[in-house]
Simulated assay, not measured.
Amino acid sequence: MAHLHPDGHPLEIHTLDAFDRAVAGGSLVGRRVQSLDLTGRTRQLLATDTTAAVFLGCRLAPDAAAKVRTDGALVFPPVPDVPFDPYRGLLYTPGELFEGLDRHGYAATPDARTYAWFQRTRQDGDIFASMLRAVHDDAMSDALDERLAGVPVVGVMGGHAMARGTDAYAGAARLGRGLTRAGLTVATGGGPGAMEAANLGAYAAPHPDGMLDEALALLGKEPSYAPSIGDWARAAFEVRARWPEGGDSIGIPTWFYGHEPPNAFAGHIAKYFANATREDGLLARCTAGVVYLPGAAGTVQEIFDNATPNYYMSRGEPTPMVLVNRTHWTEHLPAWPLLRALAEDRAMAARIALVDTVEEAADTLLRLAER
């Protein structure tokens, strides 16, 4: 939900257009201005009341910075020598995270450089670095809430090891396409494997069915991000270049598992440093339910992270949970018997299901949501 100023306009300003509209209204009193280069807006700042405003990571000319501080505004200057913006007000796009991939390789991209910074700073206990990570992750959560306000979100969870070119990957992509065509916003953990497949399906949703088949064939030439993240990512951007307009979806990955790159098919990416914040935030925002494809420890954790609030829910309705692949969830990793035992005599009992195939999953989830 967008935060509102007492005058009814958005409290936070994330773009230069929004800044110009606010200044045209005559006041920046009490506004929060995030991560903008305002060096070209000095004249406007000198002529505008900025009392109690907060400038987070904005670039200001010296005289503008002096003036707004005199007004009583708080100025948090940009942080030098870090490969990310801790104050950013918007979610990432794939193009931002993979910028420079074609020219310099994956290691030079903002995504890879941020992971390298995280690897260094998490070991040395520097309180400044940990503060920057916390500020960044809070900014991500704020941007995610604004993006998803009032939007029915369905999560698709599953393992990162699901390879392109497999039937399982194609099935997960068709699932993402079907959920998106049903009017839901698909959210995943934002990484490779089942996560990428579901985001790809959402991207393919506005196109004729044959587009997804062609995209799957192109991607199958680079089945895994190992050994080359660069080649894996370039194949995805080749698909995006061939079909530049795609459906939207959300990816929520983490630099905690930075050896797993984000996928390029989520339209908006909330990438976190803290995996616990990322996991909880992903599931909490899946208001329309969650589909669980076969996975390992991470997917099992997500099942029971979601089951816990459903089990204790005393108000509202539990979110639907659909587990896909009976053999996997009853024999290989028997999460289903435990989930069903927990649900007995609880409201969540009517909102859980186990299905054999991905083809059943979307219809089952929608049916459970109507109960």
Rank of each mutant, 00 (worst) to 15 (best):
R103H: 06
Y257R: 10
L148F: 01
E331L: 13
R122L: 12
L338M: 14
A24K: 11
P62A: 02
V68A: 05
N325L: 00
Y292S: 05
Q123H: 10
I269A: 01
R69I: 04
L46C: 08
V291M: 10
A112H: 09
A112G: 05
R120C: 09
V156E: 06
W336D: 03
S249Q: 04
L38P: 05
F118I: 01
E222C: 07
T39F: 05
H332T: 15
L184Q: 01
L97P: 04
L212I: 10
Y225I: 07
H104T: 12
D7Y: 00
R113I: 02
R315H: 13
P244N: 07
L56R: 06
V355L: 10
Y311V: 03
L74R: 07
E222L: 02
M162V: 15
K221D: 09
G220C: 08
R88E: 10
L132M: 14
S228M: 06
D142Y: 02
L97N: 01
M195N: 12
I229A: 13
R133Y: 03
T51R: 14
G25V: 03
D111C: 03
L338T: 15
N325P: 00
W117S: 10
F118Q: 04
R326G: 06
G189M: 15
D138C: 03
A350V: 02
A24R: 13
T48I: 07
H136L: 11
V358A: 14
G258T: 13
L216H: 10
G246A: 09
N325H: 13
H14F: 04
G105E: 12
